[in-house]
């Protein structure tokens, strides 16, 4: 399970959490999201996403 940030508007996707409010079940791999899916924030289609992996705020804080 990975966490991604899109360089378009900064929208993030966590495979473990999915996006249930946008119809994507928890555990859905980014690769398995339909090609016609668009960013809920900026409307960019999936093909236009530029994903980079990045940790969450809480996880990156020093112990």
């Amino acid at each position: 399970m990975k966490k991604y940030l899109c360089l378009g508007c900064g929208f993030s996707y966590d495979e473990a959490r999915g996006l249930p409010e946008h119809g994507i079940a928890p555990g859905t791999r980014w690769a398995n999201i339909p090609e016609d899916w668009v960013c809920p924030d900026c409307g960019t289609p999936k093909s236009g996403f530029e994903m980079v992996e990045i940790p969450y705020y809480a996880e990156a804080r020093p112990a």
């Binding site: 990045i54 705020y57 990156a60």
Partner: peptide, 9 residues
């Protein structure tokens, strides 16, 4: 600039 961490306040 990319943040160091996602979903900071």
């Amino acid at each position: 600039v990319l943040p160091g961490q996602l979903l900071a306040p």
